[in-house]
Design a protein around this nucleic acid. Structure first.
Lengths: 243, 243
DNA sequence: CGCCCTCTTGATCTCCTTCAATGACAGTGG
DNA sequence: CCACTGTCATTGAAGGAGATCAAGAGGGCG
């Protein structure tokens, strides 16, 4: 009944029916998880990764000091925990923000894919590189942007990731994150997130109704955002042909 | 005469003679580059990546505001510009810090590798994921660590990356970066880097003689560092077998 | 010698944090 | 139906880490 959404991969290349089938059957049984469930803890030994089918999931990292940083808010279609495969233990803690559905994929299964499916493996590489790009952008930003700029970019980023999932209408979408989480994502305190959102609202750039957020002035937000959105190539020339 | 150093890959898996040969012959002709040469500019169309054979190279990103952030200081053995292959244009600007030697690898060549060498492709994935991990760590840090902690971690990171290259003796190594560059790498100003280094020196954690830097008290620095170093698994179970 | 680059140091400023208190709202149980 | 509790959002006041501005010192190199 639940299927891993392939919009991420459809945006990268033409998928044959066989490839669609392979990707769809990659994950094991779908697991329903309640809100606030932590299903991977930083430091745990891991044996596979998780496909996010439905809902929002937090990836957070705890520092030696005990401080906890939310590294990314994951949306359906994301692969969770793939960096952990190279060091064997979980890099991050995965916690559901909303009710969510995930599917497990063992590293062994990924290894088989790598061994037999060069084209899908290449698409996996693209997905990982895109994540890397998004980290580079985040890093560049936290180094040099103000709270207002960061927040603008963050909201635009969510907007563009939610759109292909059909979760945006009229530039308005549901934001299940607390201001505290947003602060962790951007390296700010919840207090300052609050003031900054208020600021954006008073400038007429956004509006809020409970947890519903509307981007009133997208061009204005874009002008504020220090980094334009990234789009991956469709069918890059180096991509291996269908087998 | 110049060969791409494979220490990076030797640390990940047992390489067959054939694999060593393949990796060594991956790059085209070695190119010598003087100090301060920019050989890839952000936004340019790219047709391949660069293997760094010798010397230090900066990867920097320019924001819409015009601010320029150094994303990473690359050392011999690194692959430069691989994120650009998924978007077709250069993500970052590559500039030599010291005299350097690089070798070009077309994306086409990489695609052939992906199509025919699942095991080496997997090792490439590991290398990319490790880069991603390092970005996650940086991000967590800039969000939550003080300038002193960041600097401690940065110096320890350089130490551990330079050691396998034989560039460290007695915990002492050459640091060809200006304080300004270090500031860009850590999201600080050169002024503050200066004060912080001075601080570390007065605490007896490091000492400096010109561009030569000595880590006097490594355990002390580690205690200060908010993030322990990451080590990839050797021959992870999911790695495809030799063909 | 003079120029430029880098390091160094001081003074001031500001964005964001920290601490603290209040309000809005939903859920829970009597 | 209404206290009771916990979670979030909101707002104020004070403090600090680091930025910015400015100027001097050392050192390599034409």
């Amino acid at each position: 009944m639940w299927r891993y959404p392939l919009n991420r991969f459809h945006a990268l290349a033409n998928l044959s029916a066989r490839e669609v089938e392979l990707l769809s059957s990659l994950g094991g049984a779908a697991v329903k998880r309640p809100r606030r469930e932590t299903f991977q803890r930083q430091g745990d030994v891991t044996t596979g990764l998780h496909l996010l089918i439905e809902g929002w999931v937090n990836s957070s990292v705890t520092l030696a000091s005990g401080k906890c940083l939310v590294q990314k808010a994951h949306l359906p279609g994301d692969m969770l925990g793939s960096p952990s495969m190279v060091i064997g233990t979980a890099v991050d803690t995965l916690t559901t923000i909303t009710d969510a559905v995930t599917a497990f994929v063992s590293y062994e299964r990924m290894g088989q894919l790598f061994a037999t499916e060069p084209r899908l493996t290449s698409l996996f590489i693209v997905a990982v590189q895109m994540e890397r790009l998004s980290l580079i952008d985040m890093l560049a930003m936290t180094g040099a942007a103000s709270a207002k700029e960061s927040l603008a970019r963050f909201l635009l980023d969510l907007h563009s990731r939610l759109t292909p999932l059909g979760a945006v209408s009229n530039n308005s979408f549901d934001l299940p994150l607390t201001q505290e989480m947003i602060g962790d994502l951007l390296g700010l305190t919840s207090v300052h997130v609050n003031r900054t959102m208020r600021d954006l609202e008073q400038q007429g750039l956004i509006s809020r109704q409970g947890h519903r957020l509307t981007l009133v002035d997208v061009p204005g937000l874009r002008r504020l955002s220090p980094i334009p959105p990234r789009t991956p190539l469709f069918e890059p020339g180096w991509l291996p042909a269908h087998t």
